[in-house]
Design a protein around this nucleic acid. Structure first.
Lengths: 153, 153
DNA sequence: GTTGAAATTGATAAGCTGTCTCAAGATAGT
DNA sequence: ACTATCTTGAGACAGCTTATCAATTTCAAC
């Protein structure tokens, strides 16, 4: 297997996250496996997924990929700062953190529909609140729960 | 058992919610039972509970009250608009909607300190976003993660 | 107050997510 | 290539919530 120096060109946009993962693995004496690469590539294509949906998606590419591996890997991504877990209903959604600016969610408690939004004004006010309290924000989570038009009948 | 006409005086502050429940029951051909009254009274005393905690709390008053009944009743409260379910970790928290406190948090990723805050302007913008998307907000969660003054050195 | 159809309860079985176990296999430093 | 170590896959397992069903309670109509 040839080893090319990364960071030149022709690398997909997954490069950044792949490097983040590689660094996290190195720091914790973990290994880069075929499964972890496969799952990361598929994960980065989406805004948010459940372990179950990834399991079905990836069954085509690797029928022997186990559900436990998906869970383990998605949790690994959370520790590496690539993903963020969010509990909705009875399931856990894993959000792709790199999709910044579409970080906020409007969630229907009736049907589970998730609408993504961004609002600069809210972000600005968040900064204001943080500064006022001596904080510097690294990330945030804003979820609005309510009923969508259809679920209100 | 004497039957007194309600709604005069000396009723606790649970009156309002009890009426909400009564109306909901009437509208859906459900019945007001001893258990439902008991659970509502205990529920209203608290900000948020899990089914399990209520089960233990109420075991003293009614050792035969079943866990399934607690779950059924708390879900009933949600349908009646008295409670709201929120999934945290692996458990479901049932929030007392009448305790509409502002639950926004500023969390230090360094030392874990949690600062609570409220900001009317943010709330207003949240409503705006929701309305624009056809939603009616029931509740929300806003968490800002960052470093507090001390942890930045 | 009795009566009776319909709803509710309690105990437990079953279901659903997510984690743990462990033998077999893959990875990476030497 | 060798070997210590990590990872995987399959299923067992655990925690939380819902479904089942016979026995009981409610409540509206007598």
């Amino acid at each position: 297997m040839g080893v090319f120096h990364a960071g030149t060109h022709a690398m997909s946009k997954t490069l950044k996250e792949m490097d983040v993962l590689r660094q996290h693995l190195a720091k914790h004496q973990l290994k880069l496996t075929r499964q972890r690469e496969l799952i990361l590539t598929a994960f980065l294509r989406q805004e948010h997924v459940t372990a179950e949906t990834m399991y079905h998606q990836l069954a085509k590419k690797d029928p022997h990929l186990g559900l436990a591996t998906i869970y383990r890997t998605l949790n690994l991504f959370c520790e590496a700062g690539i993903a963020q877990a969010r509990h909705f209903g009875t399931q856990t959604q894993y959000d792709n953190i790199s999709h910044k600016g579409h970080h906020d969610h409007l969630i229907c408690t009736g049907c589970g529909t998730i609408v993504e939004f961004e609002n600069c004004e809210i972000e600005r006010l968040q900064e204001e609140v943080a500064t006022k309290n001596g904080f510097v924000i690294q990330t945030h989570r804003l979820e609005l729960y309510g009923l969508c038009a259809r679920c209100r009948h």
